[in-house]
């Protein structure tokens, strides 16, 4: 599983003086949402089979070790940090580094989040799969196995698909698979002793550069026009004449 460390989104972000990053002071960090679902799904598979090993990989500076420990406190067996000064904006570059680490792992299933909740490229999983020459199914909301065939469900706009693919394979995880568990105290203690290996990340050249980050224009403050169904005619008038959407 490839997991990314991201800030908690439930805050008002400030832009750092560089204009190219968020101001990280006071932010809490955790496993990116969809990656957390992937961790839970992987642990459930292991528990069901009562066999196998669950490994997490994260690319980034040393602070990602905390994120990797969190995954191990949930029950993941071991972790690998691909050390880089920062996480680049270029997802192809990230994918090359992840693929270099994954290629000799003989993994049956490699899981990603469908997108990272911060930079939101939604690309790294499928790109890594292509680089590894493995089949990939993106944005799955259900996963079952029939022997070595994975049976999955993918949500589309107003529709869904049932998809099959034989292992080894890469999947990217959407919501709906599994709610991540909270680490137990025992899990947290155990995680401290689990293996965490650090290696340099073999990033490819950067050809997608982050020029700037900005806060979107603020919405004007809300306005309550009145109470109860008596104000419906006024609402309809405003929608027609002011907002011009009716």
């Amino acid at each position: 599983m490839c997991i990314k460390r991201v800030p908690d989104m439930d805050v008002r972000f400030k832009i750092a003086p560089s204009g190219k990053a968020v101001d990280e002071s006071g932010l809490k960090f955790d496993i990116s949402d969809f990656d957390g679902y992937a961790v839970e799904a992987a642990l459930q598979i292991k528990e069901k089979l009562n066999a196998g090993e669950v490994v997490v990989i994260s690319l980034g500076p040393d602070v990602v070790q905390e994120t990797l420990r969190k995954a191990m406190s949930m029950g993941v067996d071991r972790a690998v940090q691909l050390k880089a000064d920062a996480v680049p904006a270029d997802s192809y570059s990230i994918a090359t580094a992840l693929a270099a680490e994954l290629k000799d792992g003989a993994y049956d299933l490699i899981m990603f989040g469908r997108m990272s909740i911060d930079t939101a490229h939604g690309a790294t999983g499928a790109m890594t799969a292509e680089l590894l020459g493995l089949p990939v199914v993106n944005a799955i909301s259900k996963l079952e196995f029939d022997g070595r065939t994975a049976k999955m469900r993918r949500e589309l706009e107003g529709a869904y698909e049932l998809v099959e693919c034989s292992l080894p394979a890469v999947v990217t995880i959407d919501e709906g698979i599994a709610r991540p568990r909270y680490p137990s105290l025992k899990g947290i203690m155990a995680a401290k002793k689990k293996p965490l290996e650090t290696k340099p990340a073999q990033l490819a050249e950067q050809r997608l550069a982050l020029d700037a980050m900005a806060l979107p224009p603020e919405r004007s403050a809300g306005r309550i026009i009145g109470e109860g169904s008596a104000v419906v005619p006024e609402l309809v008038r405003l929608l027609k004449e002011e907002a011009k959407v009716l």
Binding site: D90, S91, Y92, S93, A95, A120, H121, G122, A123, T124, G125, A126, M127, T128, A129, E130, L131, V136, N138, A139, R154, E155, L156, E157, R207, L208
Partner: peptide, 24 residues
């Protein structure tokens, strides 16, 4: 388009061409 289908296709095409994708 960055629709469910487009988001599935774009990174596959990009990786085959060994280039990044500017998403969404």
């Amino acid at each position: 388009a960055a629709s469910a289908t487009g988001k599935d296709i774009a990174p596959r095409v990009a990786a085959k061409l060994k280039v990044p994708v500017a998403s969404d």
